[in-house]
Each structure stands twice: as C-alpha cells, then as structure tokens.
Write a protein that binds this DNA or RNA. Structure first.
Lengths: 343, 343
DNA sequence: TTGTACGCGTTATCAT
DNA sequence: ATGATAACGCGTACAA
C-alpha cells in the first residue's frame, strides 16, 4: 500500500442523516401521514399528490427506516438461518436457495453457525430471535422440545429433520438409498458398512435406518460404525475400522467423511473401487474432483433452502402452504463404486 | 411423512408478546428508566435494585427489542456482507471469519449475493444499507465512485481490492506470486499463460500485473487470455486457447477456472503436469481432491473476513485501527506443477 | 382525500 | 440513585 493511499484512509466520515417521511412531507407540502400512505398504501391517495410525494422521495433518496417500521409492525423482514458449519459445502446451496427466495420477497437473510455444539446452537438461536421474523434450522442438533420452544416465539422451519408440530423441509432419503442399495446389490456387494455422523444428527439416523431397510430387503448385511464428526478428518480416522469390518462397500453419512476415508484408503494401497466401493451423501460441490469421482446420494439442497424460506414466510402470513414440495434424493454414480471384490 | 404428523403441522401459533422494560419495572417496583440503566449501563445503579431488576428480567425472559434500540440509537448491531457468488468456496472462509468476529462482538451478519452483476450488487447494497451499521464488499465489481458513494452513508470495507479513501483488507498478492513464479522458473518454464477472471475484478488485474512483474524479472514470457467468468465452465472453455498459446505453464485467476481447465485438458489426453503445469489462486477447500492435486496461491481468507468485520466495527467506533494486519499469500505446492516439457 | 394524534420499546436529558 | 418525560420514524384509527 502506498503512503499516499495510507494517508487517505478515511476517518469516520460525517454522515448526513437519512431522509425521513417528514422531510418528504415538507418538500412535497403535505402531511407526513399522507407520505406514509402514499408509500405503503398506494392507490388510497390522489394521483397528483402521490406523484409529488414519489418525486420528493426520489429526490431525497428516501429509504424507509426498517427499525421504525419494525418497532411498529413487529416485523423485521428478516429471516435467520442457522447452520452447523459454514464451510461445509452442503450448506452453500441451502444458504443460496434461502437467500434468493428471501431477497425476492424483499426479505433479508442473517446467517450464523454453531460449530456442531447444541449449546451454541441454542444460544445462537436466542441471540438471533429478537431481530428476525422467523428461523430456519439446517441440520439442527437440538432436542425436539428445544425446537418447539423456539417455535413458540416465532415461526421455525427445520431442514432435513422431522420434528412433531414443526414445519420441516425434508428430502426423501428412501428414494436415493433405494437406488444406492440396488446399485450395490447389482454389483454383487453383500455386506455394507455405514459410517454414521454426529450422534444428534437426525439425518444420520434416518440414513442408517433407510439403509438397513433396503439392504435387509435385498438380503444384504449391514454394519454401523460411528464417527461423530461429519468431517474429512473423521473419515480418515475410521479407515481401520472399515477395513476390519469385512464390508466390500461403505456408505458414509456425508461426502466429507467419504472423501477423507477414500483418501486414506488409497494412501494405504487399498484400491477404490476395486477393493472397496464408497458412496457418500449430499453430492457436494467438488465430489467429482476426486479420483475416482465419488458416487453420492444427492439432494436438491438449494430447493430445500428455498422452500424453507418460503415456509417461514407462509407461516408468518398464516397461509398454510399445502404445496409442500416433494424433494427427491437420487444416486449420482461416479467411479468410486464397482463390482464387489470376490470373497 | 405420516398422516398424524401431517395433521400436526402448526398453524400460526398464538405467540405471547415479548416482555418489555415496563413489565420488568412493574415486577421490580421501579421506573422503566431505572431498568434501562440497570441493563445497559451497569454500575450506575444501587446494588440491590440492580439485583432485583436482573432477577425480574430473567424471570420474564426479557430480551431487548433491537428495533426500538436501533430507532433511537441509529445502530442496528448488524453488518452486511455482499459476495459475488455464495457457492464459490472462496467465500466460505470469508463468511465464516466475518460471522465469527461479528458474533463475538454481539453483532449479527446478514448475507447477500449479487451473482456477478455489478448492477445487482449496487441494488443489493442499497437494499441492505438501511438495516445494517456497515457493509463488507467481498470481490466487488463496482466502480470506485460507486463504492465511495456507499461509504458516505455508512462504513464500508472492501476485501481484496484497493479503493482510494476506503478501508481495504487485501492479502499481499506479490508474496505468493513471487513464490509461484520462482517455483515455475526453477522447473524450467519460460512461458506462462494467465487466464484472467471477470473484467471488473480488481483482484484479477492485480494478479496479472504481479505475474508480469515477477515473470519479467525472471526472464519468463507471459501471455494473457480472458475468461470473464470465474467458474469451472470458463476453465473448460479456455482449454483450446491455452494449448494454442505455447505456454508450458498456466496460472488461472482462481482455482475453479484452474480445475475446469485441468479436467478438460486431461480429458483430451494432455498430461498434467508433464505436458503442462497448472497453478490456481485461492487454495479453496477441495483443491487437494483433484488428481493431481492443484498447486495454488492461497490466502488467509478467514482472517480477511475477520479483519473486514473488525474494520467496520472500528470505523463505527471512530477508533482508527492502526493495526491493519499483514495478510500474506503463499504457494501451496501439489501435483499439478512439474518440470517443463522440453521444447 | 388528507391532517391530527397516539403508540410501538428504548435511551437520553433533565429533575428530584 | 432514581423518577418523569421527550424523542427516534413510522403506521393507523380517528377526525375533518
């Protein structure tokens, strides 16, 4: 950075106060309440005064003061989104979907993460609550009661989890697991290991029971092992257990675990997919970067985020949106799955 | 979803109004203004009444109404962060860094994206402005004047860009490029192609001129080609031009372009790194998933986000934070770079 | 159709 | 140390 630029670094600029409806009223020669009406209830005003008011508003570069409006209406036009870990690629699409839907409805999205700690999650939710109209919990680690407690204050929508009395956006796990198990069965696999995610993850349990169900129907054995953290590190750490399990195929709670596991196995000379097949969940951005590419059960995350935001909004409006979307998961087959190694 | 659960889907729950300082005042038998003081200016009140007030507040589960406070103080305790594309992994760490710093200072982060459109970016900034105390622009595509215009209203901090009179958090490109060019030089490369990013990206121009500078000093030829979008797709599209350029090494504006390019080259039978070396920028999450792993010039993105948030806060406080951090970029060497193919 | 007056919850100023 | 009161900007019931 040059000295000249450094010297130019701004001190606190003297900001001129934003224009209010009173400024507009004065400029347009009407009362402030008339301005308010013209701006928020168009049509209930004479055409020419409305004209003048809009002109004045534009000239003064007027924006409504959200705080003042919120104080009166109780609505902040803001939605909170709480995720476990901002850097997990799964959330990008959820965040994007929610943000776009919110922006379209002229709502603003506030984002917070809780780093896999249920306690932090509750604290974060409480911290956000007063400044939002509703909350989206993505992959919550909270107890059902805690979620319902939050939902008593403001609208709450959960993603990828079912909680009694709470609006939920859940992709249908079965459709994708069905495909995945059928895929493995067709390749001759007879024993599948499942590497679970966080103990308090509803999605992890759901995935496991779905796997058990479809594998059972196909006469395939299943074995579960726990990793507790949904990270690449956890995938690396579970490699020994996977090898010892005798499974010829592994399904991991998410792609991060799957990729960590795959890296470690390959580094140890295990051939993927020849010696062992690997399937992840989420089909995250970059899942096709690995060699082999990761076969994964994907879901329309962006849609989930979008419908979650929409859910909060319709809860707010009191319009029971019956058109709950059906979100299907499906298998994306890449190179990490192949014919089972003969026993 | 079972029928029972479906039936249980909530209508708008009758939410009881939140407690105010008047409720506390009544319960504690004091005046509302005393409550306000006890809560916001601790110490200026007698110990026992303060005790009573806090007890009452806890009992009523009191939270301050941010709108009411903001109306009076003009402060929302909110920071806006505007990014080009939420799903670009570079931003994950920036967002995380900013969010953590904000949360620590009891601020809230609002997030919005503008999808690479400068017009959308300005609209988004204006939309957010009234409800935030300050703005962070990550990889802005705006004109300097537009940014200064925004900065007149509220504190603005830009990331990875220099704008006169605007606080900027910029990682030192030269350190990493120096390493990268030296690395390529040591491998015998004499002609480097640079695949540029968006035309309006300050960072892209900066990277290009830094490359020219260090390559020039090392007696290495450089050639620029433009991609305009910072995506994998753009990387795929530029493959022909790269091959035609006669360069034995490519540096791409970002890792996404680099990875798209690498995939396409490999698909066409070009060997990476034997036939051509590739270096990206940003060292995004997943850059080590590719085969070969992507050599990349990385920066401490999370730190950048953190200091950007801190910058907004200190601008707000009027404390000219002199301790602007030095953020160094550095080369992460993986498998995508090797000895130059003999001409 | 438009103006008047009040209240939302909080902080700040001025008394007491 | 604490109470009374005004003010922030906006929306709305009521009056004109």
């Amino acid at each position: 950075m040059s000295d000249a630029e450094h010297a130019a670094v701004p001190t606190v600029a003297p900001r001129k106060p934003a224009a209010t409806i009173y400024d507009i009223a004065q400029l347009a020669g009407v009362n402030a309440s008339t301005v308010s009406r013209a701006l928020s209830t168009p049509g209930r005003i004479s055409a020419k005064t409305e004209q003048k008011i809009h002109a004045a508003a534009k000239e003064l570069n007027y924006r409504v003061n959200p705080a003042a409006r919120a104080l009166l209406t109780g609505r902040t036009r803001t939605i909170g989104l709480i995720v476990a870990d901002i850097t997990n690629p799964v959330f990008f699409d959820i965040v994007r979907g929610a943000e776009r839907e919110a922006a379209e409805q002229d709502y603003t999205l506030v984002l917070a993460e809780f780093r896999e700690s249920a306690e932090m999650e509750m604290l974060t939710a409480r911290r956000l609550m007063p400044s939002v109209d509703g909350l989206i919990l993505a992959t919550s680690r909270l107890q059902p009661d805690e979620i319902r407690e939050l939902a008593e204050e403001k609208p709450v929508v959960v993603i990828n989890r079912e909680v009694d009395h709470i609006t939920a956006i859940v992709a249908d796990v079965d459709s994708g697991v069905d495909e995945a198990v059928a895929h493995l069965a067709s390749l001759g696999h007879t024993r599948i290991a499942y590497v679970a995610g966080p103990r308090r993850s509803w999605a992890s349990h759901k995935r496991w029971s779905s796997i058990q169900q479809f594998a059972g129907a196909a006469g395939i054995e299943t074995v579960e092992m726990s990793s507790d953290q949904p990270s690449m590190e956890a995938g690396r750490a579970i490699a020994d257990e996977v090898l010892a399990s005798g499974a010829t195929a592994v399904m991991a709670y998410n792609d991060l675990i799957a990729i960590g596991l795959m890296q470690t196995l390959i580094a140890r000379g295990v051939r993927v997919p020849d010696d062992i097949s690997i399937i992840g969940f989420d089909n995250i951005f970059g899942a096709d970067w690995t060699t082999p590419g990761l076969t994964s059960v994907g879901a329309p995350h962006s849609e989930a985020g979008k419908y979650a935001a929409r859910g909060v909004l319709s809860l707010l409006a009191g319009t029971e949106s019956d058109d709950r979307p059906y979100l299907r998961t499906s298998l994306v087959i890449r190179g990490s799955t192949a014919q089972a190694r003969p026993a």
